[in-house]
Design a protein around this nucleic acid. Sequence first.
DNA 1: CTAGGATCATCAATT
DNA 2: ATGATCCTAG
Length: 750
Amino acid sequence: MIDLDKELNPQQADAAKTTEGPVLILAGAGSGKTRTIVYRISHLIEDLRVDPWNILALTFTNKAAKEMKDRVGSMLPEGMKAPNISTFHSTCLRIMFSHADKLGYTSSFEIADAADQKAVMREVYKKLNIDTKLIPEKRAAREISEAKDSLKDPEKYAQDNFGDFSKKQFIDIYREYQAHLMHNNSMDFDDLIMNTVKLFKKYPDVLESYQEKFKYIMVDEYQDTNTAQFEFIRLLADKYKNLCVVGDDDQSIYKFRGADIRNILDFEEHYPTAKVVKLEENYRSTSNILAAANEVIANNSERKSKELWTKTPEGSKIRFRQLDTASGEAAFIADDIRKRVEEGAKLGDFAILIRTNIQSKEFEDAFRVRRMDYEIVKGLRFWDTKVIKDVSAYLLTVAGGSNDMRTNRIINLPKRGIGASSVDKVAAFAAENGLSLFDACCRVDEIPGVSGKALAGIKSFTEMILSIREESKSMKLSEVVKRIISDSGYDQYMLMESDSTEKYAEMKDYINKLKEALDSYEEETDEPDLIDFMRQNGVEGSTIDKVTDDSNTDRVMVMTMHNAKGLEFPNVYVSGMEQGIFPGFGSIMSDDPMAIEEERRLCYVALTRAEKTLTLTSSRQRMINGERRFYAISQFMKEIPDELLDMNVQPKKAEKKERVIPEARKIARAAFEEKPVAFSAGFKNAKAGAFSTSAPKPDYEVGDRVRHFKMGEGTVKSIVPGGRDYEVTVEFDSVGIKKMFAGFAKLKKI
DNA sequence: CTAGGATCATCAATT
DNA sequence: ATGATCCTAG
């Protein structure tokens, strides 16, 4: 028996014990939300003897799912089967896997990711002859995504917007877009949810089987749900009504991707018998930080009444500094962190939160110059990498996939002299004869108008694929990858594309990671299914983490506020506290008064990330889109009471010092701090180091044979001393005469 | 068909 | 400032 009263505070325990019927847990920032959910699940399984497979916990991100899975796993006894804890999309993917045929797909359907969607949209525009300047593709994609999020398929959308002139074209675009996806047997991310709801509505018996399977349902970050997700949950929980949703209306920051805050605000209306539990004790931040966050969010009109409190001490005041320039702002923060690290803090205890990604550049420079370890947290996932997507497209094509999106991606990659017009001709032939693009390529001889380079290119392309396909039957998937990148010339292509050895090594690294993933998949799985593997990874993307060669985690984190949601750091800097940056220009100008409230919630999220200290900074001017602009201090600063703030009243001095460093001196200092042996570290560093370093005389002479990492072997024609480096002219055997700087080219004498 | 110069658009971002 | 996309000459 788990002693919930001992492990949890009274509200948390109440939430964990209420297992039957609808429950809304309003969990403020840092109130032990995950802990509560984890205990609730363990309580269900261990004390109430609910079978783990009858429990479904839904999250938005794979990261959240993984964390919850790990924490639940460590609490359950050895060998106990784990409950279903996964994302909405992953759950729906699994459901679709079993029932796709009922909706007109085959079970080998694929997932269309953002890049695929874009490609499809281009096709649609071409077919409907729509000018991308009249309706930006992004606008149409958004409209479609919104339609799907609110469960409108093309027919429903057409009905609802009948006679609305402004929507007329979207109706056509949506219909055509969906037809293209269907033709490629593909679902986009929004389809996964919409189709599952469709399935449930169309097949009550299927729905019931899942209602029986998932008797207890939990939803994390409920404030982020959209209409489709709401309906998905509603249907699943309709039989037993054991639905526990956890969220915080004050942390709803994803309206721009369809989240409907009404779902959480109106939960008690949707479920009149719902029990509401509020978790308001905060275990994360000092009371000063909490007070500031509370004061800011209090300016919002529509919220559930909730106020965080804490037993922790006041802590230091919240610092605010206004600097003159964005680089000055970054310099101030970097210097401040360096100072505090010298006083004993760890780099890893610091995070810098930014509103937009462009702000990250200044910090990148500031930390690089100071040789401080940092990480700019980007959204890029392994499976979204170009290299991986390219190779995956090859793999799926070799596997016999009839997905035109995949074929399209690789047909002329690397370049085989197959241009758009040739592809169009093949595509037309394919359409006429009901073939896939690849099958049409195989019959290219019958296609009129395709000749010369294009014809040869298509022939060698299909021959290559078919021959690998033939041999692949007796190969491991990782060996197929190897064959693909050598036979297709992709290896050579990577070499040409990469402008540094590091970049090339990184690409190879990605491919090796892919091979490893394929190997372990084949080992672990009885009946390996490449399509299922790819599909799974397209949605979950978690099998392989982003390739980071640095195992040292003690570094300053720089990330957007959106990215920081759910995380916490001892010391937080919020950069860009300016009217027009944060709140953003768009929300100030918006005619929707709720827009500024969303920004304010984002501010609330940002402030509540901090445990011990919080520093807010702004810049008087900023270079935006290449022009200098001036900014006033953010309105959110005024919403924090003065008595909580340390405004640094006097020292204009310290600030001035940062201001007067002329650009030139800063660069000089940067160069000075750069390693003297800059040329060994690749192009990027070489550029910065060039200010203070001159290259040594090359160890080859005119007439010598040399090797270049990219262009192969050649003969040195001339060596001319330049300003700070030697300009070498080489006649390469393969690519002819090239001029290059000795320091950059890294030529090896043979 | 391709390369590379001209032009354009520019918030946040998971799955 | 920057990266993606369009356009045009060869």
